[in-house]
Design a protein around this nucleic acid. Sequence first.
DNA 1: TTGAAATGTAAAAAATATTATACATTTGAG
DNA 2: CTCAAATGTATAATATTTTTTACATTTCAA
Lengths: 70, 70
Amino acid sequence: MKNKIRKLRKEKNYRQEDLATALGVTRQTINAIENDKYDCTLLLAFKLANLLGTTVDDLFEPERKLLENH
Amino acid sequence: MKNKIRKLRKEKNYRQEDLATALGVTRQTINAIENDKYDCTLLLAFKLANLLGTTVDDLFEPERKLLENH
DNA sequence: TTGAAATGTAAAAAATATTATACATTTGAG
DNA sequence: CTCAAATGTATAATATTTTTTACATTTCAA
């Protein structure tokens, strides 16, 4: 799922390590999510959005096809 | 994490089973999330919001203390 | 250009979400 | 009230996320 984490993080001059520490996760987790290795949990999504001064809906963008009704 | 799933689901006259089928998960998953047994994945959150005609940020409300910086 | 800081990556273990199967309880229309 | 539908719950198995530890690569200021 695409996201704007790296963009917003750099705007605030944070390192991956800074986000990780602030949110209580490891740097690897931040790195993996930034690089779209897997989807993070809902709670971490809210924490990230909160810390980066935005909303979950703005921060993440799921692929259209995944939202379409089956 | 609190949510408005039951409220919005009933407004649309859906059963838990209907949501489950539409989203490709089991009824137990919908039930568990409605009743706050655990947090769903980010993708499922987006699917739920989409189907219920709202946003992730509106549908879910994490507890304040969990968002505060450590 | 060099060296340290920042980022990327790997693999196994731990934590958490979801499924599958099954049964119990509640709810509401007839 | 009664019966079926809807919802709640339990447990073990599976899938996915996150941690831990460790090392490789990139970036950028001196």
